[in-house]
Measured scan of single mutants.
Amino acid sequence: KSEISQVFEIALKRNLPVNFEVARESGPPHMKNFVTKVSVGEFVGEGEGKSKKISKKNAAIAVLEEL
């Protein structure tokens, strides 16, 4: 299972809201860097990556460590 689906499963079991959002985009158009924030109830994680998908996955990994 992907880290993102694990976050949603845990949140569902604990009845917590999940929110993913792109917090920052930086860099030139051909080499963008994304920072995504995820919140699961009061737990927050942040991930960085060269694409929105990678930064979302890294944010999920960060919040899984707290859950």
Rank of each mutant, 00 (worst) to 15 (best):
I61V: 11
E9R: 08
L64P: 05
E25F: 11
G45T: 08
P29V: 09
V38Y: 01
V63D: 04
K37W: 05
G49I: 01
R14W: 08
N58Q: 11
M31F: 08
V38I: 10
I4P: 01
P28R: 10
K37G: 01
V22C: 12
E21R: 12
L64D: 04
F43M: 08
F20N: 01
S26R: 07
R24E: 13
E9G: 05
G27L: 06
V38N: 05
L16H: 02
H30I: 07
P29Q: 13
G47V: 01
N58V: 03
K56M: 06
K37I: 04
K13S: 09
L64G: 05
G49Y: 00
E21A: 12
P29R: 12
G41F: 00
P28K: 09
P17V: 10
A11Y: 00
P28Q: 09
V35C: 12
V63W: 01
F43G: 03
A60S: 07
E25G: 12
I61A: 14
V7W: 00
F34N: 05
G41S: 00
E42Q: 13
A62E: 06
V22Y: 11
E65I: 03
E3V: 13
P28V: 07
L12D: 13
R24F: 09
K32G: 14
I4N: 04
E66D: 13
V22E: 13
E9F: 04
I4Q: 02
N58L: 09
S39E: 10
K37F: 03
H30P: 09
V63R: 02
V7F: 01
K56G: 03
V35T: 13
N15A: 09
P28N: 10
A59F: 00
I54V: 12
G27P: 04
S51N: 11
T36R: 01
A59R: 01
I54F: 02
E42V: 07
A59S: 03
E66P: 08
E48D: 05
G45Q: 06
K1E: 08
N19Q: 14
N15V: 01
H30S: 11
A11D: 02
K50T: 13
V18F: 01
A60N: 01
S39M: 12
V22G: 09
P17C: 05
T36L: 00
P29S: 13
I10T: 04
E3Q: 08
E48S: 14
G27S: 08
A59P: 00
R14K: 09
E9W: 04
V22F: 10
K37S: 06
K13W: 03
L12R: 15
S51V: 03
V44G: 06
G49T: 01
E3H: 09
E48H: 12
S55H: 00
G27R: 08
K37V: 06
M31R: 14
E48F: 14
K50M: 11
L16N: 02
K32S: 10
A23S: 12
V35A: 08
F20H: 02
N33T: 15
N15K: 14
F43I: 09
V38S: 05
E3N: 06
S39Q: 13
G47F: 00
K37D: 01
F34Q: 05
K32Q: 11
L16T: 03
K53N: 08
K56S: 02
N15C: 07
N15M: 07
S2N: 07
G47N: 01
L12I: 13
E21P: 00
T36H: 03
E9T: 09
E21C: 11
G49N: 01
I61F: 06
P17I: 07
R24C: 13
A59K: 02
G27Y: 05
I54P: 02
E9V: 04
V22L: 14
F8E: 08
M31P: 11
V18N: 00
F8T: 07
V18C: 09
N33C: 10
F34M: 04
E42C: 10
G47D: 02
K13Q: 12
V40H: 01
G41A: 01
E42G: 14
V63K: 02
I4F: 04
K50C: 13
K56D: 02
P28G: 11
L67Q: 05
S51A: 04
F20R: 03
L12F: 12
E48R: 15
P17E: 12
G45R: 08
F34C: 04
K37H: 07
A23K: 12
V40S: 02
A62N: 15
T36V: 02
F20K: 05
R14Y: 13
T36Q: 04
K32D: 07
E9D: 13
R24I: 10
S51M: 03
F8A: 07
G49A: 05
P28S: 12
K50S: 14
I4D: 06
S2P: 07
E21M: 09
F8H: 14
G41M: 00
N15H: 14
I4E: 05
K53P: 07
E46I: 15
S51K: 06
N58P: 01
V38M: 08
L16P: 02
K50P: 15
G45C: 13
G27N: 07
K1I: 09
K53T: 07
V18P: 06
K52P: 09
G41I: 00
K50D: 10
V44R: 12
E42S: 14
A23Q: 14
E65Q: 13
V44P: 01
K52R: 11
E48Q: 15
I54K: 12
S2H: 04
F8P: 05
N58A: 10
F20M: 07
S55E: 02
E42D: 10
T36W: 00
L64T: 05
E21S: 12
E46H: 14
I61R: 14
L67E: 01
E25R: 13
A60G: 02
V40L: 09
K56R: 13
K13H: 10
V35E: 06
P17R: 13
N33W: 12
K1Q: 09
S2A: 06
H30M: 11
E3G: 04
G49V: 02
I4R: 02
A62K: 14
E42N: 14
K32W: 05
E21T: 14
L64C: 09
G47A: 06
F20T: 06
G47I: 00
V40Q: 04
L64V: 04
E42P: 15
G27C: 06
E48L: 13
A11G: 15
E42K: 13
F43Q: 06
L67I: 11
K52N: 03
F34H: 04
K32C: 12
G49S: 05
E42W: 07
S39V: 13
I61K: 13
N33L: 12
V18T: 01
A11R: 01
Q6I: 06
K32T: 11
F8W: 15
V38C: 15
F34A: 05
V40E: 04
I54G: 06
K52H: 04
A60E: 03
A62S: 11
R14G: 06
A23I: 14
S26F: 06
A62Q: 12
V7T: 02
V44Q: 12
L12N: 15
G47M: 00
K52S: 06
